[in-house]
Simulated scan of single mutants.
Amino acid sequence: MSPSPRPLPPELGGQFSVRRASDAGATRRRMRARDLTRPFRGVRRSVRFIEERGAATERDKKPYAEFRRKRQELIDDAHAYAMVMPPGAFFCGATAAVIGDSLPVKFPDALDVAVVAPQRAPRAKGVRGRKVAEHLVTIGQFEGLRLTSPASTWAMLGRDHDLRDLVAIGDALVQIPRDNFGLQHPEFARATIADLATELARGPRPPSTKKLHEALGLIRVGSSSVLETEFRLDAAAAGLPDPELDMEIHYDGTRLGISEFVYPRYRVVVEVEGDHHRTSRGQWNRDIEKYQAYVEAGWETIRLTSSHIRGREADALQRVAAALKRHGWVG
């Protein structure tokens, strides 16, 4: 049996650069031990670190646990690469979108890393390099990582995303969060529509300039999921009346609930329900109470799931149009 590797200096933590380890007294041979992995050239990550991360995510049974697990893995990779990344480099694209803003983009299969021209884009295994003009990017920080600001991230995603994706991403950025009491907190919004407009005013971004401007005109405050954005865009294209978004419903001075799409003139509410409405017992019970209160106050509620909006036999628009017509809308 091989002897156990000599313990590493505790100040190195779970992942570290080879140079820092050498400065702390670790030998080259120690850097080749089996209890260390190599996420990037010049970086080591301990197997124990990986196991502890895995155990922590296994304990997470709340909705969207898989997203949080994958996001944490991406953050760990970004911290690892940051130890050896070129001076002045920063994370961008889908990497910045997931790490900094938890935006609805496909998880990147490599770290998106950019530099300002005329620097050369970084090249390394597990890294997708990019070079950008200085006047077209603003840089911020997240947990000590340099990455594009929310508005710059959105604009840079224009190259690789279609119009509907850009609207959904923009909707997510400008959404005004609510706390557990349902109170809005504009100060916690990651960006405003004005921020996105200011970003586009920095200059053209061929070949996505036109697409970005078109997306900007379609972004709205109040859509809190991709499904909601998809339904909103489809409803507008079909000629349905414009709804109020993320609206509070009151009756006799009491707030009955907050709903995604509300047609006040027709007393119709549309709820777009993700899977957590089904899997969370607390959410399920709250929904039942809210919808009963809506009925008693004279509102009709149309509940939609992903199969109604994007399924093979999607009929969300027909369902909502029929409800509106029952309440006096002439389509």
Rank of each mutant, 00 (worst) to 15 (best):
H308A: 11
E228M: 06
E300R: 12
T254L: 12
E248K: 00
V221Y: 05
V272R: 02
Q283D: 12
I219Q: 08
H308G: 09
V269Q: 07
R286S: 10
A297R: 04
V268Y: 09
Q318Y: 11
V226Q: 04
S280F: 08
D242F: 08
H276I: 11
R255T: 10
L227S: 07
S224T: 00
P243T: 03
T279Q: 08
I288G: 11
G222V: 09
D275N: 08
L218I: 05
A237F: 07
V269H: 06
R232N: 07
N285I: 08
V262G: 03
E244Y: 00
S225Y: 02
H308S: 12
D234C: 09
A321N: 10
Q283V: 13
S307T: 13
I258Q: 01
S225N: 02
P243G: 04
L233C: 02
I249V: 12
A236T: 14
A235M: 01
G274I: 07
D252M: 14
M247A: 03
R278V: 10
E300L: 14
G239C: 02
V320N: 08
E244R: 00
R310L: 10
F261M: 01
R232G: 03
T301D: 09
L304E: 00
S280Q: 09
T279R: 05
E260F: 01
G274L: 02
R278L: 11
S307Y: 12
F231A: 01
R310Y: 03
A237E: 10
I288A: 13
F231C: 04
I219M: 05
L317N: 09
G274P: 03
K290T: 03
R303K: 12
F231H: 07
Q292R: 14
V226F: 08
E230W: 08
I309M: 10
G298C: 02
T279I: 03
P241F: 10
D287R: 05
A237L: 06
V295F: 15
R319M: 13
T229N: 06
A314N: 08
E271Y: 04
V320I: 11
W299I: 12
V221A: 05
Y294A: 04
E313M: 15
Y251E: 12
V295Y: 15
V320G: 10
L317I: 11
K290F: 13
E289A: 08
I309R: 04
G311P: 05
E228L: 00
H308D: 15
T279C: 03
A314H: 09
M247D: 06
D242E: 14
R278A: 09
G257K: 03
A297M: 08
E244T: 00
L240H: 11
P243E: 06
I302S: 13
V226R: 05
Y294T: 04
E300S: 15
A316N: 14
G239Y: 06
S223T: 10
D252Q: 15
